[in-house]
Design a protein around this nucleic acid. Sequence first.
DNA 1: ACCCCCCGAATTTTT
DNA 2: TTCGGGGGGT
Length: 767
Amino acid sequence: MADFDDDPLARAIARPPAPSAPPRYLEGLNPAQREAVEAVDGPVLVLAGAGTGKTRVLTTRLAHILATKRAWPGQILCVTFTNKAAREMKERIGHLIGGVVEGMQWLGTFHAIGAKILRRHAELVGLKSNFTILDDDDQERLLKQVIQAANIDDKRWTARHLRALIDRWKNRAQAPSEVPAGESHAFANGKGAEMYAAYQERLKALNAVDFGDLLVLTIQIFKAAPDILADYRRRFVYLLVDEYQDTNVAQYLWLKLLAGERHNICCVGDDDQSIYGWRGAEVDNILRFEKDFPGARIIRLEQNYRSTPHILGAASGLIAANEARLGKTLFTKRGEGEKVTLSGFWDGEEEARSIADDIEAAQRAGEGLSDMAILVRASFQMREFEERFLNLGIPYRVIGGPRFYERQEIRDALAYFRLIVQGDDDLAFERIVNKPKRGIGDVAQQAIHKAARAAGVSLLRASFALIETDEMAAKARSGLRRLVESFARWRANLETQSHTELAAIVLEESGLIEQLQNDRSPEAAGRLENLKELVRSMEEFENLPGFLEHVSLVMAVEQNETDDKVTLMTLHGAKGLEFDRVFLPGWEEGLFPHQRALDESGLAGLEEERRLAYVGITRAKRLAHISYATNRRTHGLWQTAIPSRFVEEIPDAHVERRETDLGAAQTYDGGRWATGMYESSYSSPGWRRAQANAASGRAVNRAPLIEVSAELIATNDPSATLVQRGERVFHDKFGYGRVAQVDGNKLVVDFETSGEKRVIAQFVKRT
DNA sequence: ACCCCCCGAATTTTT
DNA sequence: TTCGGGGGGT
């Protein structure tokens, strides 16, 4: 409550304004922001450019709805993508509505809210309300079983591949029966949909769901039970959606169902910051908003409070090259500032060295390390910087490494907990049945599986029966008996014992702790520490199921980072953040824009990469430094690259070019960059191995030749396309194939080895 | 049950 | 190059 004193919004709400004066919380908003706050009824799309005060608008809008008594906190549905965003909103709202309400019950991520709804109506889709939410590791292991059960070669058709397909279908809310035949064909000669169906069956049997199901199944429920849907529609008087440009089809359908006739929906987003197309986000959702919600108001927030004019100018100039956008013009009242710098380096090492030097110089000049960030396209780029930082002793932090709950020892512990809460969780059982070793090898595990299948029960249940028979070797049987009896005991204590106590006992009695104590490897101590941390982190939860729900939905553990360190992260990870000084290394063709984005998604892929560049530049408050290296080692081979086309797209007025003379490896002929690749003469072990491979006649795993031209992708001129339908072509990556379709410079080619792919015409050669 | 070697893959990542 | 998974040998 003390916070009320520091928070003008909270104060304003606690003390209602005089009738005539506008409420205090509207003070200090610019006209567009104020409009977005006050337009509470009917559909509204707030196009919030980078740094335009989006979060402030969102929270103030909520405050406004509450202060004007249009709805109670529990009648507002407010969805975000990440837990971080949800947490931030909750904190700010918490101040506003104080101790009156615990918090907003329906403020959370799509998945958390989906899970909440699904648990209430689980029986309608054949689940129990204590269902497990699988992470992608479990998901993949389960898929592998499904693939093997169908006698499909799981080398040729990997679980990973199938998972990607199923994710895609679920992102579009497609049930197995709705999978387009062509896409089903993408797996094991048409078995895709069949595998998907089998997987869903297995999930049901395990009383488990995956992330996609949290939305797909709730949509199913809404459609099958109109009374339930009507209930939620009545409850949710106002809907608020953050980062709307990141929604996928399933999320869109889910929102549309919940918005109902009333359409009091407000979506906030920025089409120019849509960078998650590859995981199903549909920019179209935001581009199409007016059609979806007739009479929608579109409000643009264009005044930027973050960056200098040069930074905004650079970013705006770049993003203007995109076709598919609603269009905004950011402006600022801040003073000039410095131009964005552009530097070229001989290789990645030199680039890292120079950036590290700049960081040290800036630090000496009084800048804080935590005000600086290096934003890379791909995480392998981080290594060079880490090495350099370690060398120089510059403190740094990497954001986005392997996360706490993904560590092996944590997963093992969690599998024990899951099995206590939900005995049907066979995946958890398989994980820990012989971990730590208790003599239950392959043979014994096969026997358990067989018994479970025969009786149609879970592995744990089957094990209970099995230890009473003599179908298993004595050693395995006694090991299994001890395990199974432990579970019986733990489960019996679930209700009576505190969950942290229980957890500590489980870790001890299972032997996990002992195993690590006996482990002499250097990592063991850290792992023990992690387990302790795990138990500690359970304290803030009410019970074990509550904790597990948190774990499956929030894969990260909170870390309070107040130390003065340079931040190293990917561009994707940087969205929503800001730094005083930002370094953007690796702006090279093939790396950024990434070759795969171009190969797989053509123009759309290029535009998404460009948005990523835009996100990168707009993270900077005061200084942005772009750089590229002419030579870079990837997968053990040296490759030569040319500067990213994005470099050229930034208006000269906003850039200071510091490129030195390193043009030797590049040529520029009339709008077309040519690149080559050469192998180094390094006498590294890998190089020797490659030579040996070549000598022995084996194919060398060599990266595809990068050949890009600066203008080609943007063209829509059909005459630019040299190949015709039906022609036989060669592609560096996919090999030989026949052109099935020509669309401007985009082709659909039916490749002999890899099937139909969409490729850019300029990447294929006629044969 | 464990170890070693070979092979393949190596953008981005939340939930 | 580096990592992890799987197969095969001990």
